[in-house]
Design a protein around this nucleic acid. Structure first.
Lengths: 137, 137
DNA sequence: GTCGTTGCAAAGCGTTTGCAGCCTA
DNA sequence: TAGGCTGCAAACGCTTTGCAACGAC
């Protein structure tokens, strides 16, 4: 008989908790990448006493389970969005600080790198004014 | 006669200190974006007792004076490089973790954003293997 | 001598973790 | 009931700041 190896096992199950559902709901309804603090505020509308550690723990778990994606923007703390199918980028509004998904991609970044380098991926962040901020200027 | 307004005034002068020179020299000689910790190690070869706060203060001052530029990469702490003339991007090696300048730019990112958005700038980060890591695989 | 600069330690900020009690299945 | 989950507070890693001594000009 084989002994069980001591590798880290996937969790037996995920329980449904009000906290987790509130976080997912906020992410779904907002439809944009959100910061842990934004999520906490939104989720507290449903679960008043909720703590920030719970937000971080759930985001981490959801990211590992691929139900949410981490959105890393240059020079600032990560935000989180519901998992999308494909490759995409982001637009960061300078006025309202909100981040939006951008589906298009110029593609073919390979040739930008110095000779001898191998490029296997890229990140693009666009900056400017979103539609509503542009109007409300 | 007008009273002097209480606005924050530009500093009278910048003194030449061993610390500041050591930092600039490290940046010059390395030719790549460096982290504050890397800079501290390099600078300590010249100024043994140097502290990390000095590195941060000088980088901040140099960035404000436009003699160095902050390199913000998605999902990690900023690095610093000597100020370049033009618009450029960066390549981040997955193996050695070093960052290299990339002069090319696909340009014309305007049309990637959703309709109604105004794009005024963008950041691109390339990922892969640099030339030496590719060889030494 | 003036005052910009430095090292040290403490404080900040975003994030993670230890722990005891809670609650889902 | 078992053990995943939660809130709280402490711990963390990176960066900034207060302060008294230091040193460039």
């Amino acid at each position: 008989m084989r002994y069980q190896t001591r590798m880290s096992q996937p969790k037996t199950s995920q329980r449904r908790t009000r906290q987790r559902e509130a976080i997912r709901r906020a992410l779904d309804e907002t439809g944009r990448p959100m910061s842990p603090t934004e999520l906490l505020e939104a989720a507290r509308a449903e679960v008043p006493g909720m703590g920030i550690a719970t937000v971080y723990r759930n985001l981490k778990a959801m990211a590992e389970a691929n139900s949410v994606q981490t959105v890393d923007l240059p020079g600032e703390p990560p935000r989180y969005e519901i998992a999308r199918k494909g490759h995409h980028h982001h637009f960061h509004c300078r006025r309202c600080d909100r981040v939006f998904e951008v589906d298009n991609c110029p593609g073919n970044m390979k040739k930008l790198a110095p000779r001898g380098f191998r490029v296997d991926d890229h990140d693009i962040t666009l900056y400017g004014l979103c539609a509503s901020c542009r109007k409300g200027a």
